[in-house]
């Protein structure tokens, strides 16, 4: 199963999102430095988790329980990461 990357604007927002997700769902998450190909405007931070959590994350977002910018899937093709916007 591939991963998804949920982008935020800052390290503070990313840590907050990670803690919110852990509190609400106990899903396995990690804060990462946003890959350069999907950041907008320069450095930022994101939360990485399994693609299996996508529907739940969107549901929480729609219920205003979490905040993020975008969601990308991450696949590795020929050794390179390829991202698709799933927002």
């Amino acid at each position: 199963m591939s991963d998804i990357i949920i982008t935020t604007g800052s390290i503070t927002s990313a840590v907050r999102l990670k803690k919110r997700l852990n509190f609400l769902t106990h899903m396995n998450t990690a804060v990462i430095h946003t890959p350069t190909s999907i950041n907008s405007g320069g450095c930022s931070y994101s939360v990485k988790t399994s693609l299996a959590n996508l529907d739940l994350i969107k549901k929480l977002y729609n219920e205003n329980k979490i905040v993020y910018k975008k969601i990308y899937s991450e696949d590795v093709i020929n050794g390179e990461s390829v991202f698709h916007d799933l927002s």
């Binding site: 800052s10 390290i11 405007g41 320069g42 450095c43 930022s44 931070y45």
Partner: peptide, 8 residues
């Protein structure tokens, strides 16, 4: 430097 929006 803030570690965010570095291109701006």
């Amino acid at each position: 430097g803030t570690g965010s929006l570095s291109q701006s």
